[in-house]
């Protein structure tokens, strides 16, 4: 499937990626050629094949309900771009 400029813009928005206007045609071309590669899958009939989500046929292990973590706020916030009063700061969220 060949992607158009508008498709690239939509995907980039969904993925929250700023893409410069000038780069869009190249993205469209590259993504389209990757999709063409991917679409080779359609040559195989997979009717009735069980989708495989995991390499191993295992089940989820359950953790006991115990508090094991301690407060490491200072340590974790030392690497944060913007904090104040223990909070992470972001541009105003409008609700």
């Amino acid at each position: 499937m060949a992607l158009e400029r508008k498709d690239v813009e939509n995907i980039a928005h969904l993925a929250r990626l700023a893409i410069s206007e000038a780069d869009i045609p190249e993205y469209a071309r590259n993504l389209s050629s990757i999709l063409a590669l991917v679409e080779q899958m359609s040559a195989v009939d997979t009717t009735g094949v069980h989708p495989m989500a995991h390499p191993l046929d295992a089940t989820q292990r359950l953790r006991e309900d115990v508090v094991t973590e301690t407060d490491q706020r200072e340590h974790f916030q030392a690497i944060a771009p913007a904090v104040e009063a223990g909070l992470y700061l972001v541009p105003k969220v409008i609700e």
């Binding site: 992607l3 990626l17 989708p51």
Partner: peptide, 30 residues
């Protein structure tokens, strides 16, 4: 990285999931 994020976003998005992601999981089984 941006290319791969975009391909993945597209493959999971509404209307394409079955044709891409589900199909790939079936291929993975084969």
């Amino acid at each position: 990285v941006k290319r791969r994020i975009m391909i993945g976003t597209y493959a999971l998005s509404a209307g394409y999931y079955d044709a891409y992601y589900l199909k790939a999981q079936q291929m993975r089984q084969l």
